[in-house]
Design a protein around this nucleic acid. Structure first.
Length: 466
DNA sequence: CTATGGCACGGATT
DNA sequence: AATCCGTGCCATAG
C-alpha cells in the first residue's frame, strides 16, 4: 500500500519538473539517467521482469500471445505492447534473451563515426581539433568555415588544422569537410584512385574544366582538352556513378543514421510499429522504455526503514523518496508516450502503411486536445524521439506533424518521373501539383526542391540523382 | 524575358 | 515569446 499523497508544494514542483525533463529525453538518454541513479541510490531497484500490459501476467515475451489474439479486433486498430527491454531494436522474434544481452546497437552520428576513425590516426591534441571541425559540418557534410577561423578559436596553428582536415577528408565518407563541391569530388576521386585505376582525364576535367562541367558544356571541354566528346561523356558518367555531391548522404544511405530535413537522427527507435503476424490484424505498436525492467523502491529497504537507527533514517527516507519519484515519473512518461503513440498511429495509418504521400496534416495541438494534455507536453514527448515503421524506416516522431512532407514527396516523384531531356521548371511543377490537390507557390516548390537536394531545372539534365 | 535564389514579412505553431 | 513555414518582391544570371 502506498503512502497517502500529500500535496507538498515542493514535491509537486519537483515532480512536475522531473516529469517534463524525462519526457523530453529519448530512451537512450533515459537509460543513462536511470543507470546513474541506480548507482547512486541504493533504494532504487530495477526489477527485471516483463508484464503483459493487458492481463498483467508475467510473460516470456511481448506481445503476450493470448492478449494479442483477444485484442485483435477488426480493422487497423492499434495494439499496444510496451516492451520493457527496449534498447535493442530486434525485428521479429522477441524471444527470452537474457537481459545481460541488452546490447545497445551502434548509434553513431556522422561526426562520431568520423571521429572514431580519425582518433586512430592522430594524437590527442589533434582529436580536439577534429572534434571542433566535425561540429561545424553542415548537412551536406561540407565545411563552410575557413581553417584560419577554426585555428583562431582553438588557438592552434593553422597548419595543424589543415593537417587534421586532410585526415578527415580522406576518412570513410570521403570528401567530407571540404569547402566546396569541387574539392569534395576531387578528394573522393583521390581516395578512389588508391583502390583502383581511375582515368587521369577525370581529374583533369575537375581541375581545369569545372565551370563548363557544371554548365554541362561538354563540347567545349572536349574541344579545349583535345579529346573526343565521347570521352568527356564517359567522364561525366563516371562522376555520376561513383562520386556524390553530398558526402554526408553517402554514409547515411548505409542506414545507420536517418536524415530528415538535413538533421541526422540516431538509429535507435523509441517506438516501433510493425505489421501483425496474423494477416489483417491490427498494427503492433511497441513503446520502448529504454530500461531492462521496471523501476521500484526496494521493498526490503522500505520495510526496513522503521528499524533503522534515527541518524540513518533521514538519509534513507530521502533515498526512498527520490527512488519513488523517479519510478513514478518514468512510469508516467511511458504512459504519456503510449497514449500519444496510439493516436498518432491511428491518425496516420495511411502513412505508416503507405508512403510519404499519405501523410496527412496533423498538429501537436489537436493531438493535445484529443488527449487532454497540454500542447507543450506533446511537444516534449515528441521531441528527440524516433519511430521505426513497418517498412524498416526510422523516422523522427516529429515527421508525423510535418505539414509539407506529402507535397515534397509529390514534387520528388514528379521530378523523378518526367523527361530527362526537358526537366520541369518550378513553375511547371506548380501546375502539375494542382490536379493532385496541392496548391503551393512557385517559390515554395523551389524550397522543397532544395530540401530534397534536387538541382534546379536548368542544371538537372542528367546529373547525380539525389 | 524567364527561371532562380535571397531577404524578409506575416501568420501559424510550439 | 520564440520558432517555423509559406510566400511575395526583387535582384541576378542565362
Amino acid at each position: 500500500m502506498e503512502l497517502v499523497y500529500l500535496p507538498d508544494q515542493r514535491q509537486v514542483t519537483v515532480h512536475l519538473a522531473q516529469t517534463m525533463r524525462l519526457l523530453e529525453m529519448s530512451n537512450a538518454d533515459l537509460a543513462v539517467e536511470v543507470a546513474q541513479e541506480l548507482d547512486a541510490n541504493p533504494a532504487l531497484q530495477l526489477v527485471k521482469e516483463r508484464l503483459c500490459p493487458h492481463c498483467g501476467r508475467r510473460v516470456r515475451a511481448l506481445p503476450c500471445p493470448a492478449c494479442l489474439a483477444k485484442h485483435s479486433g477488426d480493422g487497423p486498430i492499434v495494439f499496444l505492447s510496451p516492451r520493457l527491454s527496449g534498447s535493442g531494436f530486434t525485428r521479429g522474434s522477441d524471444e527470452e534473451s537474457d537481459f545481460s544481452e541488452d546490447r545497445i546497437p551502434q548509434t553513431e552520428s556522422l561526426a562520431e563515426h568520423l571521429l572514431r576513425q580519425v582518433a586512430c590516426i592522430v594524437g590527442e591534441a589533434e582529436q580536439r581539433i577534429a572534434a571542433n571541425i566535425l561540429a561545424r559540418l553542415d548537412e551536406r557534410g561540407l565545411l563552410t568555415d575557413r581553417p584560419a577561423d577554426i585555428a583562431v578559436t582553438l588557438r592552434v596553428p593553422v597548419e595543424a588544422v589543415i593537417c587534421v582536415l586532410g585526415v578527415i577528408q580522406r576518412a570513410d565518407p570521403s570528401g567530407v569537410a571540404t569547402c566546396d563541391l569541387r574539392e569534395s569530388l576531387l578528394i573522393q576521386l583521390e581516395v578512389l584512385a588508391e583502390v583502383g585505376a581511375v582515368h587521369p582525364l577525370i581529374r583533369r576535367v575537375l581541375l581545369e574544366e569545372w565551370e563548363p562541367l557544371v554548365k554541362r558544356n561538354y563540347a567545349a571541354i572536349a574541344r579545349r582538352l583535345g579529346v573526343a566528346l565521347d570521352d568527356v561523356e564517359e567522364v561525366v558518367r563516371f562522376i555520376r556513378c561513383n562520386l556524390t555531391p553530398y558526402p554526408a548522404r553517402a554514409w547515411q544511405d548505409t542506414g545507420r543514421v536517418v536524415s530528415y530535413l538535413g538533421r541526422s537522427v540516431y538509429y535507435q527507435p523509441d517506438i516501433a510499429i510493425s505489421l501483425n503476424p496474423c494477416p489483417g490484424g491490427p498494427l503492433i505498436v511497441e513503446v520502448f522504455t529504454g530500461l531492462a525492467g521496471v523501476l521500484r523502491v526496494d521493498p526490503v529497504i522500505k520495510s526496513g526503514l522503521a528499524e533503522m537507527a534515527e541518524v540513518d533514517k533521514v538519509e534513507w527516507a530521502e533515498y526512498i523518496e527520490r527512488a519513488g519519484l523517479l519510478a513514478k515519473c518514468v512510469q508516467q512518461r511511458g504512459n504519456t508516450m503510449r497514449r500519444i503513440a496510439e493516436i498518432i498511429v491511428v491518425e496516420q495509418v495511411a502513412f505508416v502503411l503507405g508512403g510519404d504521400v499519405d501523410l496527412k496534416p496533423l498538429t501537436r495541438s489537436v493531438l493535445a486536445g484529443r488527449l487532454c494534455l497540454h500542447e507543450s507536453t506533446v511537444s516534449r514527448a515528441v521531441a528527440n524521439k524516433t519511430a521505426a515503421l513497418p517498412n524498416g524506416r526510422i523516422v523522427p516522431l516529429s515527421i508525423f506533424f510535418d505539414r509539407s512532407l506529402a507535397v515534397r514527396d509529390a514534387v520528388q516523384s514528379i521530378i523523378r518521373k518526367e523527361p530527362r531531356a526537358a526537366p520541369f521548371s518550378d513553375t511547371q511543377i506548380v501546375e502539375l501539383l494542382k490536379p493532385q490537390g496541392y496548391n503551393v507557390a512557385r517559390r515554395t516548390v523551389a524550397k522543397y526542391r532544395q530540401m530534397l537536394g534536387i538541382l534546379p531545372a536548368n542544371l538537372r539534365g542528367r546529373e547525380v540523382p539525389a
